[in-house]
Design a protein around this nucleic acid. Structure first.
Length: 227
DNA sequence: GCACAGATTCTCT
DNA sequence: GAGAATCTGTGCG
């Protein structure tokens, strides 16, 4: 654990990542989220974790996106918002997923946070996840981290510079430490199911299970096209 | 250390 | 009414 992430540091308004960060192009934001600190303050419990695994979803041409092809429904309309809000949805009858909306207004974009490394509020995380769960399994998956952070549908559409969930600066991760592999659980997305757009920090123990060997960030970057 | 099925409810057809 | 951007326990080695 890192002692630098104190309550004081995590809650200071000036340390929150500004909205302009989220308004950038999706792939850039996805990459830059690695190493940053996700903070939640719900039910009066401050909890934080370093982001170690993320996946981008583009509404316009990515078949894996809920909003493909620019489909506006009550669920997906949040993805069309201006970058800097939360997109939270429910899957498999029991799990929430937490996404960050990027890009300008009108561009459907969501970045799924798949795993974090706990850095603050371990007690609250353990209580929410259950006493039997091993430390390494507390937040190494999108459903797990939502439970650990107290994320529910109520937070859908909330601002990322609000007082419930936000992101603060962490340690920058060099390109050499970023690996990319196919995204998870999207077999229906045809050619897009194989795109190596799941990004994670190399050798980090809190990344969720990896089946295929990752490729370099530079290589993956070239595949980020509508093809 | 696998593989498999069950849980359970929301969203869109 | 089908299927889902998942997790967990069980059973087998």
């Amino acid at each position: 654990m890192f002692d630098v992430y104190t309550r004081d540091y995590l809650t200071k308004q000036e340390n929150k990542v500004p909205l302009s960060f989220y308004e950038q192009e999706t792939f850039t934001v996805t990459r830059s989220l690695l190493g940053k600190i996700l903070v939640s303050n719900v039910e009066d419990k401050l909890v934080a974790g370093r982001i170690v695994e993320v996946e981008p979803y583009i509404g316009a041409w990515d078949k894996a996106s809920h909003a493909y092809p620019n489909k506006i429904t009550p669920r997906t309309k949040i993805q069309f918002d201006k970058g800097g809000v939360l997109y939270i949805y429910f899957v498999y009858g029991m799990h929430y997923q937490l996404c960050v909306v990027a890009e300008q207004e009108g561009v459907a974009s969501a970045i799924l946070i798949r795993a974090v490394e706990p850095v603050f509020g371990l007690d609250a995380i353990r209580r929410r996840r259950g006493e039997k769960v091993k430390d390494i399994d507390l937040t190494n998956g999108p459903g797990k981290l939502c439970k650990a952070f107290g994320i529910t549908k109520d937070l859908n559409g909330q601002s990322l510079i609000g007082d419930k969930v936000w992101i603060v600066k962490g340690e920058d991760v060099p390109d050499e430490s970023v690996l990319c592999s196919p995204r998870v659980g999207i077999d229906y997305a045809q050619e897009f199911a194989k795109k190596p757009w799941r990004m994670y920090i190399k050798d980090n123990a809190y990344v969720s299970k990896i089946k295929t060997k990752g490729i370099s960030y530079k290589k993956a970057q070239k595949t980020f096209t509508p093809d």
